[in-house]
Design a protein around this nucleic acid. Structure first.
Lengths: 163, 163
DNA sequence: TCATCTGAGTTTGACATTTGAACTCTGCTC
DNA sequence: GAGCAGAGTTCAAATGTCAAACTCAGATGA
């Protein structure tokens, strides 16, 4: 909202209850919820895997999962590991998957401003192989998400220094 | 990360400490921080204005502002209202302004999935006047943010019903 | 000179949430 | 039928949130 050198804005032009951003924030209100969605974006779907991956207390994970399932971002799916008993995996719904651009935009920002331009994930157009990013486009001009390929390029050497 | 019908992902390919998204989330960890940034996106910059606009307790606002100033998302700028004493406004830095695509992506998601497609803010390309959105683009193919014009289209009738 | 006002905080103390550890529950598998 | 593992639930202590009251500083007025 460039208001340049005029009178200051004293109130947002859109109240919280009418603002898509504010309403979205209400469905992803805290750090844990964001990190859980990040895990699912990466394909991690089991309770215990998410728990150890991001270091969240089980009690909190259980509560947050219930919330995002209730909000329809994630659904619980039965799976069976080998011949063991049925367990549940948490996977993004269509609604949840459409948050991916938000996560990618955050990642892009973090890579630029916190990691000094070093990205840990390469995004390319599956058809052309050309790199892609998140940005402003004319309506109808965006590439479909399903054409995007993700390739981790995290350099283990940095953390590891192994022989 | 489409892993289709193979073995499940048991661990994210990028650890939290190397993931731009996770690092970004650490700088905007809660609802209040998001809402404060939303206010600044809309141009609301004064302590008291932000406070009443989003209904945040003063003590919490004061703490959150200190955090985002320390993280460099926002800077404190002196202003003088009429002949009153110098006071401070909080405005986005370049780093903060580059979060705008994230906020817009959230807004787009909220408009689609919570407001059933009703947007309260129209985004257009300042040059052509054509509508724009946030999406995946070939690298280098995005429109610069400064070409985007924001126009509130919130329909007061809905909340108001005035004569 | 002194009292008052206003924006921007800080302090306070009651209340709510988060944390991590210990416990439970449920069906395997041996 | 004992042991195991994943997915929770329960609990007390630490931490964070809330609203109201208080502070502070400089302009303004009497």
């Amino acid at each position: 909202m460039s208001n340049s050198d005029d009178a200051p804005v004293r109130e947002s032009p859109v109240p919280l209850s009418e603002c898509g951003a504010a309403l979205a924030i209400d469905q992803i209100p805290d750090r844990w919820t964001w990190l859980i969605l990040r895990e699912m974006f990466y394909g991690v779907s089991r309770f215990a895997d998410i728990q150890t991956d991001i270091g969240i207390p089980k009690s909190v994970l259980s509560g947050r999962l219930a919330q995002i399932v209730e909000n329809g971002l994630v659904k619980k799916e039965a799976y069976r590991d080998g011949s063991a008993r049925t367990r549940y995996a948490y996977v993004l719904t269509q609604k949840g998957r459409e948050l991916v651009p938000v996560i990618l935009a955050l990642m892009q920002w973090g890579d630029k401003h916190i990691k000094n331009g070093e990205s840990a994930l390469e995004l390319t157009d599956k058809r052309s192989g050309n790199p892609v990013k998140i940005g402003v486009v004319p309506k109808g001009g965006a590439l479909p998400l399903r054409w995007v390929t993700y390739k981790p390029v995290w350099d283990k050497k940095q953390a590891d220094g192994s022989s």
